[in-house]
């Protein structure tokens, strides 16, 4: 009989202990934040690492303003939009569109006669596909404690320029300086030459149209 009681008691003790601790646990779980973290700890351990959650920043849009010197048509304001895709730390691909408006040639100004081009023919627009190479990564030390990352890059590409009423196949090459304000914003100073043939004045001649611009970029 005694052994039977002992058996029951032994069976009851762990059961009671378990019930007691469980109720104590649940009673304390809500108000106590320490217990709460203990509760979710296994969840934290099991959290999946998902590479897709990492914010990838391989693209950049740049809005640039500056000047383009259109051969024979003076230096004119220009506006350009660029999309950069960073292939790796060195190479990037750039799609660009730009527009400007040609001024008067010296001949037109001096002769005071009929204009050589209509107003709409003076409108210049271009697009280009270029490959860029970050030649010199670097840092700019603004103050002793303020440092910005920079990169000097070169680029070259092809595209089209619509000017003087015609499409003109265009080669471009240039260089630029990228100043990284932080992980998201950049300032870009670009210089490039757009080379295309013009036959507007009779004979076909190659022209060099230098462009320099300052752009504001957003990395995403």
């Amino acid at each position: 009989m005694e052994t039977r009681f002992r058996h029951i008691f032994l069976a009851l003790v762990p059961a009671l202990l378990y019930a007691f601790s469980a109720s104590a646990y649940s009673a304390e779980a809500e108000p106590e934040s320490a217990e709460e973290t203990a509760l979710i700890e296994p969840e934290v351990e099991r959290r999946e690492f998902d590479e897709a959650d990492i914010d990838g920043n391989d693209f950049e849009v740049v809005l640039s303003m500056g000047y383009i010197s259109i051969e024979d048509f003076g230096v004119n304001n220009m506006l350009a939009g660029k999309l950069n895709y960073y292939v790796n730390e060195d190479v990037f691909v750039q799609l660009a569109v730009g527009q400007s408006k040609g001024g008067e040639t010296s001949f037109e100004t001096l002769s005071g006669g009929a204009p050589l081009l209509t107003d709409s023919e003076r409108e210049l627009s271009y697009y280009s596909i270029s490959i860029g190479y970050n030649l010199l990564p670097g840092e700019a030390f603004v103050t002793q404690n303020t440092t910005y990352n920079t990169a000097f890059y070169v680029s070259a590409g092809v595209g089209n320029t619509d000017f003087a009423g015609d499409d003109r196949y265009t080669f471009n090459y240039g260089a630029g300086y990228r100043f990284l304000l932080n992980d998201f914003f950049t300032i870009n100073a670009d210089f490039r030459n757009n080379m295309f043939d013009m036959d507007t004045f009779g004979e076909n001649k190659g022209t060099n149209n230098f462009e320099y611009s300052l752009g504001f970029g957003l990395v995403f």
Partner: peptide
């Protein structure tokens, strides 16, 4: 902890 990625580099 990883904050972000740019090409083959991780911040």
């Amino acid at each position: 902890i990883i904050l972000k990625r740019k090409t083959n580099w991780y911040k």
